[in-house]
């Protein structure tokens, strides 16, 4: 019996990440989702003050952006294209389950397919990027956190668009790494690292963090950068799930280009 049970356990460990649409044994199922949700509702009352503060901060930031947009017609925060068609839609959601100390971390949200959430959508907060949706049930969804060994995204330096691949080394929940970053100019500590227009699932210009240190990858011209993440994963509460309205078209085009390249 010992061998049998261990066998089942290891079978689960090995197959968990390969089935995309099973939501039975994860935190987005009805049992765990509802327990987490109930507790979240209860806990909410004790956090009203912080929530208020963060909303105020967001409000003032939005006002500032509105002001900037009016006077400079900036294209930095592309929310609509030149014809006025919106490119992104933001679904607000609440974090009901959150891990950040594991080797692979996930976040559970209280919105699911009934609310329009789909697999592969990006998740952000007002502070920065959080992760990508990997599993969806009718009322809950599960997000692969930036703090996950399989999380990958193309990100770059805001100042000059030098791009690299972001991946977590599993060490600290406050830091991540960008590897194989090209170097078009001088790297400066403290530079903002943001998502780029080539990053899938995220709108361009969303903050990832700031550059803490960098070193040259031996044997190549690339740099590895250590990023101080802007999101505090131990205090996640409200997030936005990003729906890219033309994602399907973009993906098909990308697929087409890749096929043509082969």
């Amino acid at each position: 019996m010992f061998v049998l049970l261990e066998g089942i356990a290891f079978y689960l460990i090995f197959t968990f990440n390969s089935y995309h649409n099973t939501y039975f044994l994860n935190s987005a199922n009805a049992l765990t989702g509802n327990v987490l949700n109930t507790y979240g509702n209860f806990q909410e009352y004790f956090a009203l003050r912080q929530v208020n503060d963060s909303l105020l901060r967001e409000n003032s930031k939005l006002r500032e952006q509105l002001f900037l947009a009016e006077i400079t017609d900036t294209t930095r925060h592309v929310v609509a294209d030149s014809t006025g068609t919106p490119l992104y839609y933001y679904y607000p959601a609440e974090v009901i389950g959150n891990s950040f100390t594991e080797a692979n971390n996930y976040i559970t949200l209280n919105k699911g397919s009934n609310d329009g959430i789909e697999v592969d959508m990006g998740v952000i907060t007002t502070e920065g990027i959080v992760g990508k949706v990997v599993k969806v049930s009718p009322n809950f969804s599960m997000v692969m956190s930036v703090l996950h060994s399989s999380f990958r995204s193309r990100v770059g330096i805001k100042r000059n668009n030098a791009a690299g691949r972001m991946q977590w080394d599993g060490r600290s929940p406050t830091h991540s790494n960008v590897i194989q970053m090209s170097e078009p100019g001088k790297l400066i500590k403290g530079d903002s690292i943001v998502t780029l227009s080539i990053s899938d699932a995220f709108p361009p210009g969303i903050l990832v963090g700031t550059m803490e240190s960098y070193d040259k990858d031996p044997g190549s011209n690339y740099y590895n950068v250590r990023v101080d993440l802007s999101v505090n994963f131990s205090a996640l509460r409200y997030v936005y799930v990003v729906k890219e309205l033309e994602a399907k078209e973009k993906n098909e085009l990308q697929q087409h280009i890749e096929d043509a390249g082969d």
Binding site: E6, I8, A9, I13, F16, L25, N29, V35, S99, E102
Partner: peptide, 21 residues
């Protein structure tokens, strides 16, 4: 019991394996 914790934690099988052991 291990599996229950795994469900909340999104670590399927890991706590179960350790608990059975």
């Amino acid at each position: 019991i291990g599996l229950t914790i795994d469900m909340f934690n999104n670590t399927p099988g890991m706590h179960a394996a350790a608990c059975v052991a």
